[in-house]
Design a protein around this nucleic acid. Structure first.
Length: 256
DNA sequence: ATGGTTGCATCGCAA
């Protein structure tokens, strides 16, 4: 089966493109991030017409996560145990469901903005809380996948010029440690196991894509029983091309 | 000339 993850940067702006890609790529489960819509405005019709059930969690114009599946969609959760709040609310940054026996979470890690911004401390807290919850999920031997936009570039080669990122978020030691901690929680980051170097995101600004000035910030942490079943990983760079692309491209796992 | 965007609850904010 094929499991994909994609920060679509507004599902309403891109529903037709996403569904066309789903059908063309023969994907069974798609985890969405940054849908940028409330639940009631999610464009369900094209997904249902293509044979996918959808579970979505969005409360305003920011964030928003979803799971689309044609192989079952059970036990949906719209936050995880201990998920930190931003101010008074838990944001729509995580949704979990069981699809074909695999526990899948679509995650949209907070951006962090700058090292001094309160959003940066929130980001670190958020990653640590997810790791804590994920430790429990993986402990029983259940196949678990945490896929999404992690907003962390774990290695220097995951950005086009590490010197440009001096003092910036996404590459700080604390963020990288918070990301790497999932390895001690019973998970393996399977995209790098199959693809040594690739970008998953190119900013709309400053001709980043034509100049191939990208970042690798979309990843898939798989609990060991799931990681052992991953045969092929694809990062679909061509989806950054053409009319009306997201600034991120899909990551696809072929799972035995 | 050293910039050049996109999406939204759109004229301000977030990425």
């Amino acid at each position: 089966m094929r499991i994909a993850s994609w920060n679509v940067n507004s599902i309403r702006a891109r529903a037709e493109r996403v569904v066309a890609w789903l059908e063309r790529t023969d994907v069974d489960v798609l985890l969405l991030q940054e849908t940028k819509t409330k639940d009631e405005a999610f464009p369900h019709l094209p997904f249902e017409a293509a044979g996918y059930e959808v579970a979505h969690h969005g409360v305003n114009q920011w964030n928003g996560v979803g799971i689309c599946s044609r192989v079952g969609l059970d036990a949906v959760e719209r936050s995880f145990e201990g998920q930190p709040q931003w101010k008074e609310h838990v944001e729509a940054r995580a949704i979990g469901a069981t699809c074909a026996g695999i526990r899948l979470w679509s995650v949209y890690v907070p951006n962090g903005r700058t090292l001094e911004d309160p959003h940066y401390a929130y980001k670190l807290e958020w990653l640590d809380a997810l790791r804590g919850a994920a430790t429990t999920w993986a402990a029983g031997g259940t196949p678990v996948g945490l896929l999404g936009d992690w907003n962390v570039a774990p290695q220097d080669e995951d950005v086009w010029d590490i010197e440009v990122f001096d003092g910036a978020t996404h590459v700080s030691t604390a963020e990288r440690q918070a990301f790497a901690a999932f390895a001690s929680a019973g998970y393996r980051e399977v995209t790098r196991e199959h693809i040594a170097q690739a970008y998953t995101y190119w900013d709309y600004q400053r001709l980043r894509f034509p100049k191939n000035e990208g970042m690798r910030i979309d990843f898939a942490w798989a609990s060991v029983p799931l990681a052992d079943r991953v045969r092929v990983v694809t990062i679909d760079r061509d989806e950054r091309k053409g009319k009306g692309p997201s600034d991120h491209v899909p990551v696809v796992l072929e799972v035995e």
